[in-house]
Structure formats: structure tokens, C-alpha cells
Design a binder for these strands. Structure first.
Length: 590
DNA sequence: GCCGTTTTCGGCCCGACTGTTTTCAGTCG
């Protein structure tokens, strides 16, 4: 049972309470939803937290929910949940992932038509709508019947409430929309919001804010977007459209004088805003996307804020970078004026995970561009150093003598490059070496000794359990030349789950033996992830942000790795390749 | 059911939009 499964279970409990008596269970609903959020974002599997008696440390998990989770992990079920679910057909919960279906509507339709089969419930409802049997129901009508058909059709094409796209994909969609919006003369300022602005690794809907004195014109321009599939809703302040590819774009418009509070509100996260509003209430202030007013002041005297800086300042807070707005202590630090100065893209001085086309006869894919081309690109990015890390020569196709010969030749080649560029940029001779299932490195010591250092990583046998995998990785890292663990969890976003490691052990090992963990900027990897970066930073473990580029264009992806680092509250001093050359060379020699 | 610069009880964010409604319920963020 994964964290996501358990998270869904808790959401179902909240949904069940909504169906039973939304008023009576009001606060239980909030509590279960919050605990579900926490679990969804926890990088550590529940079972491990349970083993270490740390379930109660999760925010939103108190004595009651903790006891239920323990029961779930021990016996596979929870008595209390079964009681809550007992009067509600299972099919209700299946419907909840279809956009437009909340607990009430799902329950009403399922019970009205006695739909028992969770596997066919979506198709059953579609059939009923097609036969016109929903229209006559109390509280429904022709329009909601049609809406149900539209939503189910879109659901069938992959639009669900929980589907999220990788950050760079969302970035591209947003870029096109921003360009389109700027064509409208009424648009004065425009900015992406929500998880896209917070640079979360995945994005659900794309949220965009516009400052304009003529909202109606902007909203009309927006819903006229030529690549839209349909308009989901259109109001006086906000509108939503569906674009081809089944993604939703939401637009919010405010006059320029209120743009700051709009940015703040729709950047979120929800938890950050809830906490911020509770904090404001304690000072007698009430917050909304329109501004700030005194609590209980019904005359509605509202103060507007044109920038976020002014909005936060009005609450006595430092401006908080969007990447930090996840309600994990940032508001408390902002009160004390103690927010860390986060890493920025311009701090980056090099890239160490680069695959050139150098003929190394590698074990995995090789790069498209020559070392010289990649050096020129690195210079254009303002870097002062870089490292080449092709995959090690294939061990099945080479004897160790052949491997050594290849690497000797490559070493000389890189020495020539260094001579030629005469310190205008420094080139490190690295390699990405496989850690074999037994923990040995794929090539032998004679070959490795020819390198400045090596990146090590796992490319096979992902199915090992946590203890075996931890042993394997630490054994690989313990080689004196092994300095960096690349893409440390092996996950591919939306495609392959991470393998489990004992992070306490890994962090302690890295700290003691001067090893670094990579933040891989490749958009589908982005691991180490934000939550683990934050923990590594706390423990004093050094990190390195690399693009894992196989071509020149990919070297521009560094910004995504920097985003992960910022979401993990990393400062420039936490990142090895934000260091000056001399400090870095010293670290490599340690 | 959770939680603490209002700390072990008494609170718990704020609003938009749609559809079916004569004043609100449901969904969503």
C-alpha cells in the first residue's frame, strides 16, 4: 500500500463525512483532507515511518488518525473507516476522480439509480445521461445532464482531478498563453501562478493572473483563445478553458492596484494561505484576493496592494519566495526576518553531468555533441568549469584492458582541452559509473584511477528492497574516487516510482565521507526531490545540480534543478557547483 | 480531529462560478 493509496483512503473518509453530515463533521473533514495532503507529499513510505515510530511527526496526523494508520498497517483495515463507509456504496468513491463530481452529486446519483458496480459506474452514469434520465431529477436539469456527459467524455480522455503534468511541460503551455494574452492591449501585467510559480515538480491546472483596468476585455480575449477546446466557465473576475491535450488553464483578472493580493492569493499553496489567514486573523485582519480588511468591518473598507512585497509587509512579514510557500515554517521565519537567501540560477558556475559524443563505447546512451561544442555552450552560460560524465564503457563488450585504454586516451584528450582553453574554463575528467547490484563499480580501480573523480548511479535491478539498496549505494559511494550519487532515487515522474533508500543513513554517510548528492535537472527526474533536499540541507550534506545533458539545448535545463534546490531551501553555500573553482577543486581532492 | 506568540480548550480562511433556484447547494481553488 503506497502513500498515495492511503492518501486516497483518507480523502474517502472526508468525502464520506461530507455525505453523512457536512456541518456536524466539518472539522473532521478538514482534518482528514489535511492528513491526506501530508501523506501525498511525504517522500518516505508510511511503513518506514511506522517502523521508526514517526507517524505522529507528520503535520496533520494527531493521536486519532495515527492510531487508525497503525491499525491499517498492522491488520490491513481500519474498523472506524469501515463503519464510516458502511452506508455508502463503493461506486461513489470511483466517481470522485471525475472532474465536476463531488461527494454529494456522486452519492445522489449512485443511490438514486442503485449503481452497485464501481467498475462500471462511470459508464452507467453516461448511459443514464444519454437516455435523458438525469434531467428530471430534483436539483438537476438539462444543463447539468449535458455537463455530466461532457465531463465524463473528458475523463475518458485522461482529464482527472488528480492528473498532473511535469513542470517543464506546464511551463511551455503557459508560455504560449502568456504570449497570446500580451496581444490584448487591455493586459497591463501578466504572471503565471499556482504550483507553476511555486515551481513544483508537477502541475495540475495552469493558473495565470492579469492586471487590467478592463477585465471584461481581457476575459473575452482569453476565452477566444484559438487553441481552446471549450470554455469551462466565464465570470467577471475569472475564467477557465480546456485546451487540446486536456489541460485546464485558469485566468484571474484584477485592476493593477490590487495585483499584489491577487498574485499572493493564487500562488498559494492552499496550506500557506490558510496559515497566513489564521495568522492575520490573530492580528484582527481578514485576507482575500482583493486585499486586507479589518475583521468584522462590514462596511468593507478594503486596502489594496499593488505588489506582493507590500502585501506581506502589511502583515509584518518579509516577502516569501514562492518556492517556499508550502506552510513548512516559512511564515514563522518571515516574522523574524530570518528567511534564508535562496540559491539562484545566476549562482551556478558549472555542470558536471554532461554526456558528450566522445567515442567511449558506453554502457548506455551517449551524447550528440562534441566536448568542444559543450565547452562553448558552457562558456555562453557563464560557467567557469564543467565535467564530462559519459557512461562507463560497456563491460560486456570490453576487457578491463580495453576499458583502461579507452579512458587513457580520453584523459589525454581532456588534458589537451584544458591546455587549449588555458584556465578560461576548467574541464574535469569524470565518468558516470554504474553501481552493480552487489555494490561494486562497473569498471575496475586501474581504470577509475585515470579519472579526476566519478559520478556513480544505479541503472539496473531497481526492485531491491530498502536495506539492500542502501547497502548497494553506500558500497558504491565508498570508493575513494566516487564523489557524487547521480539521480539518487531513480524515479521518472509519472512513469517509474523511486527506489527506497534509508535516507538517515545516506545523509550521515555523505556528510562523514565528503560525498555529494545530485539534484538531477532532467525534467522527468528532478531527484533528489525538494523534500529530501530540505532534509539534506538541514543535515549539512552537499548537493550538486546537474543537467544530465545529452545535447547542447539540454544544458539550458539547469533552471529546473535550481527550482528543486530552492524548494528545498538551499543556499548557494549548500551547492558544490555554485562554488568558486578553487574551493571546488579542493573538495574533489578531499 | 488537530493544534498552540490566544498553548491542553476553544477555535478552525475566503471567495468565484454554475445551475437550479426564489435564496442556495455543490464544486473548485
Amino acid at each position: 500500500m503506497t502513500n498515495l493509496d492511503v492518501s486516497k483512503l483518507l480523502r474517502n473518509v472526508a468525502a464520506a463525512y461530507r455525505i453523512k453530515d457536512e456541518q456536524k463533521y466539518r472539522f473532521q473533514i478538514i482534518a482528514y483532507d489535511k492528513a491526506a495532503d501530508t501523506l501525498e507529499n511525504s517522500p518516505t513510505e508510511l511503513r518506514e515511518l511506522f517502523k521508526e515510530q514517526k507517524l505522529g511527526d507528520l503535520p496533520g496526523v494527531g493521536p486519532s488518525i495515527r492510531a487508525h494508520l497503525e491499525e491499517l498497517l498492522t491488520t490491513g483495515k481500519v474498523k472506524h473507516f469501515e463503519e464510516v463507509f458502511s452506508s455508502i456504496p463503493e461506486a461513489v468513491f470511483t466517481l470522485l476522480d471525475v472532474p465536476g463530481f463531488g461527494p454529494k452529486k456522486a452519492y445522489r446519483l449512485v443511490t438514486e439509480f442503485k449503481l452497485k458496480n464501481p467498475k462500471s459506474v462511470v459508464a452507467d452514469i453516461r448511459a443514464l445521461a444519454e437516455q435523458g434520465k438525469i434531467d428530471p431529477l430534483d436539483g438537476f436539469g438539462k444543463k447539468s445532464q449535458d455537463d455530466i456527459l461532457t465531463r465524463i467524455e473528458e475523463y475518458g480522455r485522461g482529464k482527472t482531478k488528480t492528473a498532473r503534468m511535469a513542470l517543464p511541460y506546464a511551463g511551455e503551455l503557459a508560455k504560449k498563453m502568456l504570449a497570446y494574452l500580451k496581444e490584448c492591449p487591455a493586459v497591463e501585467q501578466v504572471s503565471p501562478l499556482g504550483s507553476l510559480r511555486r515551481r513544483k515538480e508537477t502541475v495540475g491546472d495552469i493558473d495565470i493572473a492579469v492586471a487590467s483596468s478592463e477585465p471584461a476585455k481581457v476575459l473575452q480575449h482569453f476565452v477566444d483563445y484559438p487553441h481552446k477546446e471549450r470554455i469551462i466557465e466565464k465570470g467577471d473576475h475569472t475564467s477557465s478553458i480546456l485546451v487540446s491535450s486536456g489541460k485546464q488553464i485558469d485566468l484571474m483578472v484584477q485592476p493593477p492596484e490590487a495585483f499584489g493580493s491577487l498574485l499572493q492569493h493564487f500562488t498559494g499553496s492552499k496550506d500557506h494561505n490558510v496559515h497566513l489567514r489564521e495568522y492575520a486573523l490573530s492580528k484582527g485582519l481578514s485576507l482575500s484576493e482583493y486585499g486586507i480588511k479589518k475583521r468584522g468591518d462590514e462596511s468593507g473598507k478594503l486596502t489594496h496592494y499593488s505588489t506582493e512585497e507590500k502585501f506581506y509587509a502589511a502583515l509584518g512579514l518579509q516577502w516569501i519566495p514562492p518556492e517556499m510557500r508550502e506552510n513548512t515554517g516559512e511564515i514563522e521565519l518571515a516574522k523574524k526576518n530570518e528567511l534564508p537567501t535562496l540559491l539562484e540560477l545566476k549562482d551556478m558556475k558549472g555542470d558536471f553531468h554532461l554526456h558528450s559524443s566522445y567515442p567511449i563505447e558506453p554502457s548506455h546512451d551517449m551524447g550528440n555533441n562534441t566536448m568542444e561544442e559543450m565547452i562553448a555552450k558552457a562558456k555562453s552560460l557563464g560557467y567557469s568549469y564543467l565535467g564530462f560524465s559519459e557512461h562507463n564503457p560497456s563491460i560486456s563488450k570490453h576487457t578491463s584492458l580495453q576499458t583502461k585504454a579507452i579512458l587513457e586516451k580520453r584523459k589525454e584528450f581532456i588534458e589537451q582541452l584544458n591546455k587549449k582553453h588555458n584556465k578560461s574554463i576548467r574541464v574535469f575528467s569524470l565518468l558516470e559509473t554504474d553501481i552493480l547490484p552487489n555494490g561494486n563499480l562497473a569498471i575496475d580501480d586501474d581504470a577509475i584511477s585515470l579519472l579526476d573523480a566519478t559520478i556513480v548511479s544505479v541503472h539496473s535491478s531497481f526492485g531491491m528492497n530498502r536495506d539492500e539498496m542502501t547497502k548497494r549505494v553506500l558500497k558504491g559511494l565508498s570508493h575513494p574516487k566516487a564523489k557524487i550519487l547521480a539521480h539518487p532515487t531513480g524515479r521518472l515522474i509519472n512513469q517509474r516510482p523511486p527506489y527506497e533508500l534509508d535516507w538517515a543513513k545516506v545523509f550521515a554517510f555523505c556528510k562523514e565521507h565528503h560525498k555529494a548528492l545530485e539534484i538531477n535537472a532532467w525534467p522527468l527526474r528532478l531527484d533528489l526531490n525538494d523534500v529530501l533536499v530540505r532534509e539534506a540541507v538541514k543535515q549539512g550534506v552537499k548537493l550538486m545540480i546537474d543537467t544530465d545533458s545529452h545535447s547542447l539545448e539540454e544544458m539550458d535545463l539547469m533552471e529546473y534543478g535550481v527550482s528543486v534546490a530552492r524548494r528545498g531551501w538551499a543556499k548557494p553555500s549548500d551547492i558544490l557547483n555554485a562554488m568558486p573553482y578553487n574551493d571546488l577543486a579542493k573538495w574533489f581532492s578531499m
